[in-house]
Amino acid sequence: MKLNYLDELEAEAIYIMREVAGQFDKPALLFSGGKDSICLVHLALKAFRPGKLPFPLVHVDTGHNSPEVIEFRDNLVAELGEKLIVRKVEDTIKERNLVDGKGKFPSRNGLQTYTLLDVISEFEFDACIGGARRDEEKARAKERIFSVRDEFGQWDPKKQRPELWSIYNGKVDKGENVRVFPISNWTELDIWNYIKRENIQLPPIYFTHSRECVLTDAGQLMANNEFLTLDDSDVLVTRNVRYRTVGDMTCTAAVESEAYTVDEIIAELKESKISERGATRMDDRVSEAAMEDRKKGGYF
């Protein structure tokens, strides 16, 4: 009997999470409040209930989140009775005297790495589970499911371990850690089909709503919010929009949409000609190797 493809992807993800629990002393699950990490939590519950999750949820809070996402996070954690660790990029900036993101749509994506590496060493995490998917970006498409990082959190794409069958080698020395990506093989559409099948709840900003937005030069829609400084020349428009990914309010664009339900989102995605990152991210347009460089620096 061949499993249906969603069952197959689910089984793979659960298998990987259980390997993490079995192989590491101090794992963590990085939780951003986005759809991918919400699916990860759902999968973790399937892997470990009725037990407690063998790892805390860790949120690296950039301080530029939408309030709906933070509210959703707190409700979810309260409902599950699991442990949440929050570390703020804001605090890292103060402690380490860092320079905050600049420009009109300032990104804290790079700064996030400092906070992430700090929280990893604070708790001595030896494995961090993340919701990155290989279909998101060309450098991610190259990364192993168990991605070994050195003590500076750096990814070296030329030194990846072979990864054979579903035999995962998580052996690292003290101070090093492994980033683990259980949903590597899922696409954006798989995620939505799974959300539908499992009836997974999401923050409301994934569904269309009317919002005042700044129309950028590139034609993207940025929700008007407290973190933006508007110029006189900015064009404000009110549109029905939703988010394809949850990121910083300062540098994640919304997309125009009439999708009120998961079914409508699935239908919309099937028609969409633009990739998830292309539609929403402003920071990866800076360079052709932006993601690869961030990963080499310790980012997810």
């Binding site: 290989r134 279909d135 060309k138 498409a141 190259k142 794409p157 030329k158 990846q160 590597s184 093989n185 696409t187 559409l189």
Partner: peptide, 10 residues
């Protein structure tokens, strides 16, 4: 090509 790349389509 140096390392394997994974791509998805249907």
């Amino acid at each position: 090509t140096i390392d394997v790349a994974y791509k998805y389509f249907s």
